[in-house]
């Protein structure tokens, strides 16, 4: 399954209330004003939406929108 990047970006950024354009530049979530630990809340939403399982050990590596997108895409394929 190929994830639509724009749709994915809208979903993630909408949850956090941050600008899609800024997030797409690869800024870290921290730079976008999102607490580093808040990614845990996104994990649950992503697991449900895409029926995937995200390992807690991987969470620190998915610190920006592009990395998160690639991670979820890899899980889906």
């Amino acid at each position: 399954m190929k994830l639509d990047y724009d749709e994915f970006a809208e979903f993630v950024c909408g949850k956090y209330g941050v600008s899609v354009d800024e997030a797409k530049t690869g800024c870290t979530f921290m730079e976008l004003g999102i607490d580093s630990l808040s990614i845990y809340s996104m994990v649950d939403e992503l697991e449900k939406k895409y029926s995937i399982s995200i390992d807690t050990d991987d969470i620190t590596d998915i610190y920006s929108l592009p990395r998160l997108y690639n991670y979820v895409q890899e899980k889906l394929s």
Binding site: Y40, S41, V43, D44, E45, T56, I59
Partner: peptide, 16 residues
């Protein structure tokens, strides 16, 4: 580290 990460993940759905 594992304990804190797993706990955060486990309780996040309740907060949401």
């Amino acid at each position: 580290l594992q304990y804190t990460r797993k706990l955060m993940k486990a309780v996040s759905p309740f907060w949401l």
